[in-house]
Amino acid sequence: MIEARKVTKSFGDVRAVDGIDAVIEEGGVYGLIGTNGAGKSTFLRMVAGILKPDEGEIRIDGAPVYENPPVKANLFYIPDEPYFLPNAKAVDMEKYYKAVYPQFDRERFQSMLEQFGLDRKRKVAGFSKGMKKQLAVIAGVCSGTQYLLCDETFDGLDPVMRQAIKKVFAGEMAERDLTPIIASHNLRELEDICDHVGLLHKGGILLSRDLYDMKADVHKLQCVLREDGPAMEEIVRGLKTVKQEQRGRLYTLTLKGNREEIEKTIAAAEPIFYEVVPLTLEEIFISETEVVGYDIQKLIF
């Protein structure tokens, strides 16, 4: 488990991270979402033990991470632009990581390189941006660490590779409780992989929730009412409405609460048509952030 307690970090006069409190449980995928400059990378670099917080502390499995090699041996950091040793080939990086991470799985590394179509004996400097990211992810997965810190890792990958990597993550999670922490400014990218999401804004964490809980609590209702029936306002009076839109006779509502209760309330009004549809991550965030008084459209999109 990664715990951040009142973590603050400034660069000169700029406060990049401002009093973040967060808990990241193992075994799931944690999505760290925010605009550019929100503090995602800084937070990840602090989790990776690269940066020392000015205030507060980050602990991994109960121990502080900064300058603590045994703790750091359990995490692998993949930056936005991965760095590889000068003139190194994939095979050189393999040897290097094997020296640094004793549990590094060389056979797995080689097989994954083949699987992803990366030449083991080609200089990494000649790889494309996406290939370098693939190589970094492969190295991270094969390092055998429990935590994988990915900073904008899916940015620059083609959809096929993105899916392939997600599949690898899923397999590792199932096999050995790998905990990827993925920072991204793109909500859609994380939608189908994250279990838990933290939204960062201006160095602070706006919300950190379990995606399943959020999905269970927020619902999108599409409904066409009878002309002689009660008005929509009357029907949902007893429900918590986050948002309501109307196009012609079609109402689209975002409602908080128990799905069965919502369906029961709507069914009682005998509408011509109604359907409770799943919300996208984007929509959930819109609703959640609006609850806490932010306009997510302005924050992310």
Binding site: R45, A48, G49, I50, E67, P69, P70, V71, K72, A73, F76, Y77, P79, E81, Y83, V100, Y101
Partner: peptide, 16 residues
Amino acid sequence: PKMCDFYHSQPVSRKM
């Protein structure tokens, strides 16, 4: 910066 992050993210103390 990239190199610094690379070396400092690894499980190797600065002393080492």
